[in-house]
Design a protein around this nucleic acid. Structure first.
Length: 857
RNA sequence: GCCGGGGUGGUGGAAUGGUAGACACGCAGGACUUAAAAUCCUGUGACCUCAACAGUCGUGAGGGUUCGAUCCCCUCCCCCGGCACCA
């Protein structure tokens, strides 16, 4: 063997891995487990580019490392294939996604296989497999039974281009749809809604125990957006109406002189309905409601109109607060009504414009009133709190307001309930049936359900929690029944025309065979739900399904019993995921939704943990060499297959790991990749040509073997800190040293250890050398990871920097065994460069063992 | 505006209180070659110097703590990501 020609070795080695089942996960972990998972991809028609290769390689390095460390490793791959992008692409091609998706998957798979990723392919599945999505449907039904889903006419975001409703999380800050980039609108449609807000506190609190990047934790906290404050109740004069306002700064309430309410506020509606709205009010409301929310937010100009109504100020019962409608009051925050004062700049701007009197309760030292956000100052004219420091009275104030029955503590959240219906074809059909007859008779599922259908039999506490959820929504869901287990899966019909409709209805509604059915309760004619689930559904629990037995019968119908016998045991043995790797763009989408599903499953007893991903690491995207995102339309995409054809998968992998810290964004450079190719080729030469290692096991080298021990320990540290770039540089540095050494050869064990250290990064060529040079007949990838041998590290030369006044003026080198403060200082004082600066002056010595000596004059 | 993450040679980056620029790319010079590619060798932060020795400066800017700061603290500037008329 002479020259390194990757294509000559890679396919042969890959075949050996397959034949030897090198990467097969045990059914249940035998020892320490490492469930290593990369966020599974949506298989687009464009295939993988070299940017994708980075996240898969990094995750693979972790899996391979832990496998060699002797852990039980589950490292699976699957396909998140439902959803808008696949469907939109199929529409463009005028084909059915059912036909296209398998081709895309096949393409992704061959690309991944060429990369040498150590997946246990026996676990592979797609979220679009009926054998999988029947379980997704079954879980939907369990959540329905728990009262965590309801169907409701709701104002939602709607993408007119994709012709479907969306969740708030799918709308970007600029008001566009995160998938297609078009502006969204608001519409009111009947939707299935997940009551995720019921879990807002748990979703927030449990973040504290997670080993996740701080930025992603913070994004989830902000998204949940818990804010504690008070709701204040007001009587509206001349009406039987209690108007509630929300404030985060209750202690400033004595300042308030007016109230503003959102244009969408129910009080506005009742005013207009009662004919009490002036023409000014009617016109203003009509005008403002016509402007989409995001445009309204963009204009900071404050507008409003007086309703003619007054509220009694509970803090000053003799005074009245005029009620205005204002564009800056948002129905989506708090109660949609705000008490206003001089202590909020927005209120001041509004009051100034419309000449509404203001009052201050904290004396100012500047030209403008104190902003309540600053939270400091002495209160005046504030009832029992006059003369007190505002920051110190908050708790007392809240207690007093409650005691006086003016209002009570209240918490608001940014998190909204999760709109779970899509008016599209390419998703899991929602397994629900609506019976008009039962609805007319006010029959709900829970009124007629058998006890045995309950899924939370072992926890009275949870049964109580759930019955509370159900009580709140039961009436609104009369006539809705889930499919029974034996009727799952509810298959997505293969149809010729599946384009979204203009009517806000799913294309499935056009298919009578699909729609018409009978009521699961009374057997009269009934209709199916025709909306489908969003693309997030399948990824909410896929990590539980990967650990299933591979002989898991496809015909198996979902049921509680099947869950408990076929899915739960292995899922509990492997989950939660130990290493979860993916992009930060899912911070408040997939990563929030799947946490929510696990909390519901935990409450129902279907899983026994609360958090799915113990450890999360994010990957930085790879930009094209022009510093723009790789995209087909920009023509700057690099296909990993092309790189592999020319340089081999090992080179691509090493470069991907070396190019920058794993979590950081970086631009692709084919030129820089040459460095990785040189490195891999030189390793190859070292083993096949120069062969500077001992042929007998007894021979050792002093310096090389010692140096290798520190490489072992630095890679051990760096791999688990996902610092793959410094792992590679440590290996390169060692190879340089190895090549330079003329007088010594590395021990045979050292040569094998070096190969093992490189194996997770360059799996093909290392396994080839392992088998052909060292005569092994099993893979290097199941060989034990090198152990650092401290007996080899002793006689190392240590170089100590000698400083005068903190500036380096020389160095002293000696074997570490001779190292002592006195000797080092004595040596240092012999240095001419040091003496020149000390020059007979008095000095003090700082000695840091093994590092530095500093003479302070 | 608020919340995160950053700012180090021509470039990607290393160093988490102890010799700043490891490792790599690029570039320059050299070897091999008829020549080129590939490969190998040498050099490569800036300034000063023919050069070496020595020296000065240098991690976005300014200040502070420390014997010693890329690293900790304060003020400010810039870039990236997220959120935001949030009461």
């Amino acid at each position: 063997m002479k020259k390194y020609i990757p294509k000559d070795i890679e396919s042969a080695i890959a075949q050996q891995w397959e034949a030897e089942e090198t990467y097969k996960a045990p059914q249940t972990p035998e020892k320490d487990k490492s469930y290593t998972l990369v966020m599974f991809p949506y298989p687009s028609g464009a295939g993988l580019h070299t940017g994708h290769a980075r996240v898969y390689t990094g995750t693979d390095v972790l899996a391979r490392y832990h496998r060699m460390k002797g852990k039980s490793v589950l490292h699976p791959m699957g396909w998140d294939a439902f959803g808008l992008p696949a469907e939109n692409a199929a529409i463009k091609l005028k084909k059915n996604p059912l036909d296209i998706v398998p081709q895309n998957i096949a393409n992704f798979k061959q690309q991944m296989q060429r990369l040498g990723l150590s997946y246990d392919w026996s676990k592979e599945f797609s979220t679009t497999d009926p054998s999988y999505y029947q379980w997704t449907q079954w879980l939907f039904i369990q959540f329905f039974k728990m009262g965590l889903l309801h169907k409701k006419e709701t104002p939602i975001f709607y993408c007119p281009s994709c012709k479907t409703g969306l969740a708030l999380e799918e709308v970007l800050a600029d008001g566009t749809h995160e998938r297609c980039g078009n502006k969204v609108e608001e519409r009111t449609l009947p939707q299935w809604i997940f009551r995720i807000t019921k879990y807002a506190d748990e979703l927030l609190a449990d973040l504290d125990g997670l080993d996740w990047p701080s930025g992603i934790l913070q994004m989830q906290r902000n998204w949940i957006g818990k804010k504690e404050g008070m709701v204040i109740h007001h009587k509206v004069e001349g009406m039987e109406y209690v108007l509630d306002t929300f404030t985060a700064f209750p202690a400033w309430s004595f300042a308030d002189t007016f109230i503003v309410i959102a244009p969408e506020h129910p009080l506005v509606d009742s005013l207009i309905e009662n004919g009490k709205g002036t023409s000014e009010v009617v016109n203003y409301v009509a005008e403002i409601r016509a402007i989409p929310a995001d445009e309204r937010a963009a204009s900071k100009e404050k507008t409003g109109v007086f309703t003619g109504l007054y509220a009694v100020d509970p803090f000053r019962p003799n005074e009245k607060l005029p009620i205005w409608i204002a564009n800056f009051a948002l129905m989506s925050f708090g109660t949609g009504a705000i008490r206003c004062s001089a202590h909020d700049p927005r209120d001041v701007a509004f009051a100034t414009k419309y000449s509404i009197p203001l009052r201050e309760v904290v004396e100012r030292e500047t030209e403008t009133p104190v902003n309540a956000h600053e939270g400091k100052g002495i209160l005046v004219d504030s009832g029992p709190f006059t003369g007190k420091e505002v920051s110190s009275v908050v708790e007392d104030f809240v207690a007093w307001v409650s005691k006086e029955k003016i209002g009570e503590k209240s918490t608001t959240y940014h998190l909204r309930d999760w709109v779970f219906s899509r008016q599209r074809y390419w998703g899991e059909p929602i397994p629900m049936v609506f019976c008009q007859s039962c609805a007319d008779e006010k029959i709900s599922y829970w009124a007629v359900a058998k006890e045995t259908e309950k899924i939370y039999p072992n926890s009275p506490k949870i049964a109580q929690k759930v019955s509370g959820f159900v009580a709140e929504i039961e009436e609104s869901l009369c006539g809705w029944f889930p499919l029974s287990d034996e009727n799952l899966p509810l298959k997505l019909p293969y149809v010729d025309s599946y384009e979204p409709t203009e009517t806000g209805q799913s294309p499935l509604s056009q298919i009578p065979d699909f729609v018409n059915t009978t009521c699961p309760h009374c057997a009269k004619p009934a209709v199916r739900e025709t909306d489908t689930m969003p693309n997030w559904a399948g990824s909410c629990w896929y990590f539980l399904y990967f650990s299933r037995g591979v002989d898991f019968a496809i015909e198996t119908k979902p049921s509680l019993q099947a869950w408990n016998s076929l899915i739960k045991p292995s899922a509990m043995a492997w989950n939660p995921v130990d290493w979860y790797i993916g992009g930060a763009e899912h911070a408040v989408l997939h990563l929030l939704y799947s946490r929510f599903w696990m909390k519901m499953l935990n409450d129902s007893g279907l899983v026994d943990f609360k958090e799915p991903f113990t450890r999360l690491r994010s990957v930085g995207i790879v930009l094209a060499s022009d510093n723009r995102k790789m995209s087909k339309s920009l023509g700057n995409v690099i296909n990993p297959n092309d790189v592999i054809d020319e340089f081999g998968a090992d080179t691509l992998r090493v470069y991907e790991m070396f190019m920058a810290p794993f979590g950081q964004e970086v631009a692709w450079s084919t030129a820089a990749m040459q460095g990785a190719y040189r490195f891999i080729s030189r390793v190859w030469q070292m083993y096949y040509s120069s062969a500077k290692f001992a042929k007998s096991a007894e021979i050792r080298s002093k310096t090389l073997d010692a140096e290798l021990q520190s490489v072992i320990s630095s890679i051990d540290t760096d791999i688990t800190n996902v610092k793959f770039n410094t792992c590679i540089s440590a290996l390169m540095k060692f190879l340089n040293l190895w090549e330079e050494s003329d007088s010594e050869v590395l021990s045979m064990k050292g040569a094998q250890d070096f190969l093992k250290l490189l194996a997770p990064f360059a799996p093909y060529m290392t396994d080839h050398i392992w088998r052909n040079v060292f005569g092994n007949n099993t893979s290097i990838h199941i060989a034990p990871w090198p152990q650092k041998d401290d007996s080899l590290t002793v006689e190392k030369q240590v170089t100590i920097a000698i400083q005068v006044q903190g500036k380096v003026r020389g160095t002293v080198s000696m074997p570490s065994s001779k190292l002592s403060q006195d000797i080092v200082i004595a040596e240092a004082l012999k240095l001419e460069g040091v003496n020149r600066y000390i020059d007979g002056k008095e000095y003090k010595v700082i000695y840091v063992p093994g590092r530095v000596v500093n003479f302070v004059l």
